[in-house]
Design a binder for these strands. Structure first.
Lengths: 212, 212
DNA sequence: TGTACATCAGTGAACGCGCGTTCACTGATGTAC
DNA sequence: TGTACATCAGTGAACGCGCGTTCACTGATGTAC
């Protein structure tokens, strides 16, 4: 679409994309109506044709950020699905992959990660699609279906996995760890800890040396 | 100190306390220079006698919030220390208690919890005292000393425990869980998950029924 | 097929607010002599 | 022991900024006849 038309044509989407770009660079604080309007080549008041107010626009940008996170997880899982090997271990590797993708998304886009989980002033207009939580649930159901996760642990499993992975992401993003801890070893240790808590097997390539 | 004196006498401390109160009610966004000055019975410009700018004052309030969290953990550990019983199980119960205290602090004071870990525009003037991280380290060293935590797991243990507990706190505060999950069972499951990952014994009163 | 008109998506200027910060000042305190 | 004076901790008015939002408007679009 040419940018010099009086009618933008796709302003709703353009504002969301401008919001994602701004959030990527400056986090939730960078979501400002006038900036997003300018980035979309439009005057501030035009925004009100598409969103009731800034709080609702922010909430939609936040949802977009969460969906981007979920898509990163899905992409990582799809990549693993192509690998050869035992089907049960494959399911475990996918759980590992989505956890790692979550944490790496947070490290790669810390401001966007903050935006994804900011406290918004308005509810999102619809549910996340895709949803990171649902991706996790799918991976865990896969584990149960392949006999790799005991059904009695199925209920608490998403809670434990989500808390650990989301928690480590926040910790790494905010640099809350003493400098003696490296990100990479922290990721490996946390994901191994999740498997321990879930009593899920460790894939051979992920067995940590020297730990009983 | 009487409030009607020209010289306040303790404005530095008063501003920090006003900051804690404001943060308790409204989170990081409620930390505003004019409000804190007014709550301390002083004009806005008086603040600059005690802090170079608002970012530094905010950072100190954030540190105070983290210290309040750490004190809640210490208090919970001290309570457990008085209980009778096996010394090893006692150390495990203290780890459980500080984890629970952390999460319950977040639930009791969600806005203060947000303030504790907000991204500040200035570094704190000094290290946290007490420090939640150090409380955790102390509890883990205690476990090793009593033979309840294998030394090979000591290095990753704080990472795993902190990620899980901090992560669950954030998840509960932001109400990110489906409504089918209750806070109390989520706390129990997460802390049990930490013990599993650390291969630490479960105290008898905390063994979850029906889970193999 | 052309024309009138309702509808929709923009403009642009302005508003009001509340924020952190500044500046010249003044009242209180305490110390030297 | 009283007095002069330097120092310190406040005042209060004002500033400039940038934010979201409003309002009367106008240009473009598409449909009815």
């Amino acid at each position: 679409m040419p940018a010099d038309r009086y009618h933008h044509g796709n302003l709703h989407t353009a504002l969301l994309e401008a919001g994602l770009n701004a959030a990527r660079a400056g986090g939730p604080a960078a979501l400002q109506l006038r900036d997003l309007a300018a980035a979309s080549g439009v005057s501030p008041s035009a925004v009100y044709r598409h969103f009731p107010d800034m709080a609702h626009l922010s909430a939609e940008v936040s949802r977009s950020a969460r969906e981007a996170l979920a898509r990163a997880m899905l992409a990582a899982a799809a990549k693993v699905a192509e690998e050869p090997g035992d089907i049960g271990i494959g399911a475990i590797r996918r759980l590992h992959a989505i956890g790692r993708a979550y944490i790496e998304f947070a490290l790669r886009e810390p401001q966007l990660f903050d935006t994804a989980f900011m406290s918004a002033g308005a509810p999102p207009s619809c549910a996340d699609d895709p949803s990171a939580w649902d991706v996790l649930i799918g991976a865990l159901d896969d584990l149960v279906a392949n006999g790799e996760l005991h059904p009695s642990r199925r209920h608490d499993a998403p809670l434990i996995a989500w808390s650990a992975v989301h928690g480590l992401s926040g910790v790494l993003v905010r640099a809350m760890l003493p400098p003696s801890y490296q990100s990479e070893e922290a990721i490996i240790a946390t994901l191994a800890g999740v498997r321990e808590a879930l009593r899920v097997r460790h894939p051979p390539e992920l067995v940590v040396r020297g730990v009983t």
